[in-house]
Structures are given as structure tokens and as C-alpha cells.
Amino acid sequence: MTRAQPEYAVLTRGLTKRFDNFTAVDDVDLAVRPREIFGFLGANGAGKTTTIRVLCGLLVPSAGEAWVDGLPISSSADQVKRRIGYMSQRFSLYMDLTIGENLEFYGGVYGLSAPEITERGTAVAEQLGLSAFRDRLPSDLPPGYRQRLALGCSVLHQPRILFLDEPTGGVDPVARRTFWDLIYDLSEGGATVFVTTHYMDEAEYCGRVSIMDRGRIVALGSPQELKRSHGAVSMQDVFLKVVQP
């Protein structure tokens, strides 16, 4: 299926999500262009995860609208789900399945045909440096490899937009760098990457970042712009300046 690339990979207008009388996401406007690496920062409980869940079609917004890959999520949640990949901080791998079996399983879940699963599984394993470990269990591998496998599972179906929720927690710096190289590769390959992190140095790796506080976007721009406009030396400084204690 070929379609014209929409102008925005992710676009939200007045996006709001309320739970009872608590507003988790409050009137959020975002516009993320295709192939952008967009850092989605914020305090714990600021509404990041809720926003991602809305964008993935897992939650229905209370007000406003969001378009993912040009499709309104309110009416096309199912189609949206086919175009996105999602990797959570608790890598959803099956520890009793081998690397190859995990890939096969996720390929099946995303509705790939058997030849596609073989082809994509091989390609992804190759790209992520997992080919040598296809018959091993995830629990036998260091955290960095498990994390790569989780990423591999979420990109098998070649999603246009990839949501990564704290993907680099607990892995060693080398694995973290390798992982970011993969993210850059994916973005150069045409995917839009939407990533949350608590590592402020990683915020600097993103093309643009937004900082969320209490459901609202309180800062938005490239790391350089944000540092300049807030007179800060690092993203850590920016964060501490814009988020209310």
C-alpha cells in the first residue's frame, strides 16, 4: 500500500485526557515531522505515558484530536495500530522463548505472512546484531541485547512511527550508544521516532524535545534552542528551570 507521506507523522490539536476529575493530558498541541527523533520528556506522572497511550490508540481522548501518520485516531485506531511500533520500558519479551521464537511470535502478532516473518526476522536480527543468538533465550543475554531484541520485535512490521517508552533504562553505556545508533538508522530509513527518557544526556541526542509538566507542554524545541532560550548549559538545567517543584 503506497500513500503520500503526510505532512506530520504525529499531530495533536487540543489533545486532552481526563480520568474522573484528574486531567492527565491537558490541551496538548504537538506536530512531529516524518523522520524526526522527538524526545518526550517530563516529570514522573506528568502525563507522558498517557499521551503515548492515546497516540497508540489504547486510550480514547476526552477532547481534541490526534492524527498519527495522517490518520485520526478517534476513527482509525485499528489502522493506526498497524503503522506504529511500541517498545515499553519493561521489555515485553517472552523469557522462555528463544530470540528467534520471540521474533516469529511478534511477526505473527503483527500479521506478517510466514515468508515475511522469515525475511524480516532475518533482516532485523542481522541489523541488530542478534543473528548469532537466535537460538538462545533472552535470559541468557546481557540487558543490552534483550533491549535490542525488544526493539527488533517492535520494528518487524516496519512501522512508520516508533514509540519508545524509556527504552534505555539499566543498560550499559556501550549498549546505550549502540541502541542510539540503531535509532538513528531507523530514522534515516524513514521512521519517525518518539522517545521518552529520564537520561537528560539522551535528550540532547534528539532532534527536538518537548518537556511535559502536569499534563501540559512547558517547553518545545531543539535542545540547542531550548538551552539558548533558557540560558542553560545542559538539558538537565532546562528541565530544572521549566518543571515546577
Binding site: A43, N44, E166, G169, G170, H198, F239, L240, V243, P245
Partner: peptide, 11 residues
Amino acid sequence: TTGVDPLSRQE
């Protein structure tokens, strides 16, 4: 401080 946001971490 794992999984804790930068502000809480600073505190």
C-alpha cells in the same frame, strides 16, 4: 533514582 525524573533526582 532509577526511573525518577531529573527534578526529583536533584532533590
